[in-house]
């Protein structure tokens, strides 16, 4: 049977996105202006999160959590040997994999250009005069 659940933008995706508006030199991280956020339980895979840590911009993830009003869920800095700390990895897992932005927008910190999130998918397309 086909399920009809919509998948929305997770914070792990937000962590990978940069504003690319012409002339912008510091377009990261994009400011989250969320109007609808949902939490969904995802199976915890500590091995994957541990590997993923080297590809995550931690300060951007902390900011993202702050913008959606969950600042207290994450330490400001990754702890020492965080790759091996189950408790830490669980927190990172929750922030990266379980929080979804359904509607809202991502705002370029420099130009203020807003990238809408529609159907839970960030739209990074620019107009011709912005490229």
């Amino acid at each position: 049977m086909l399920l009809s659940r919509i998948l929305n933008m997770r914070l792990i995706t937000h962590n990978m996105l940069t504003s690319h508006v012409k002339g912008v030199t510091n377009g990261y991280p994009l400011i989250i202006e969320a109007t609808e956020v949902e939490e969904k339980e995802v199976d915890f895979n500590p091995e994957f999160i541990s590997r993923m840590m080297s590809r995550i911009e931690w300060p951007a993830l902390v900011k993202a959590m702050e913008w959606i009003g969950k600042k207290d869920c994450l330490p400001e800095e990754p702890i020492e040997n965080c790759e091996k700390d189950n408790d830490f990895l669980q927190k990172a897992h929750h922030a990266l994999m379980e929080i979804e932005v359904i509607t809202g927008s991502l705002k370029c910190p420099e130009s203020g250009r807003k990238f809408p999130i529609s159907n839970g998918i960030p739209n990074m397309l620019l107009n011709e005069d912005e490229v």
Binding site: L2, L3, S4, R5, I6, L7, M9, R10, I12, T13, M16, L17, T18, S19, H20, Y28, V42, E57, F115, N119, G120, I121, P122, N123, M124, L125, L126
Partner: peptide, 30 residues
């Protein structure tokens, strides 16, 4: 992008889609 996410979901896996031209908005971050 919407169809892609549904395909992943119907097949019980997870894909994270971004609506963009090629890799615009992903470099230099990636």
């Amino acid at each position: 992008t919407l169809c892609t996410q549904q395909t992943a979901n119907y097949n019980e896996t997870r894909v994270d889609a971004i609506n963009t031209d090629l890799v615009h908005g992903l470099l230099p971050r990636l």
